[in-house]
Amino acid sequence: MALDRITGEHSVAFVRSEQLFDWARRNSLWYLAFGIACCAIEGLMSASGPRFDFDRMGVFFRASPRQADVMIVAGTVNHKMAETVLRLYEQMPEPKWVVAMGACASTGGPFRSYPNVVLGVDKIVPVDVYIPGCPPRPESVQYGFIQLQEKIKRQAEERNAARRDRDR
């Protein structure tokens, strides 16, 4: 509808299909319902609750990794869990992003000195956005998602610019 305001009603817009998909991807980031620890209460449950309501931004949970775009790693990853995290990441279709939520997923957090804990989920899967906090407030998670949207936008622009240079 925003497009209507710019181009007038009943207008037709021409875009590259790739640009359209990038726009759609950015605004429908479905995350995998995969809570590990305390952060899950803030980042997944409060987030889908009525006050924070991430659905407004098109961020909604999916129960299956095969339908998800984003994996929020919400909690401490230990050696037993690491295998599952990697497997879930591999099951997600491309393009996919990972958000490391909280201190534990970023570096190991308060449990970093325990030998069974993995020092940050970036040892297992590539991470796009780190959200600090123990646990981060839902607002922080929301800001993290905005940063992820910005990143996707930037990546798309860079790709298009590279193509323009090549075509020239």
Binding site: H79, K80, Y114, P115, N116
Partner: peptide, 8 residues
């Protein structure tokens, strides 16, 4: 824990 982890 998984195999190979010491008695912590």
């Amino acid at each position: 824990t998984t195999d190979g982890i010491e008695p912590l």
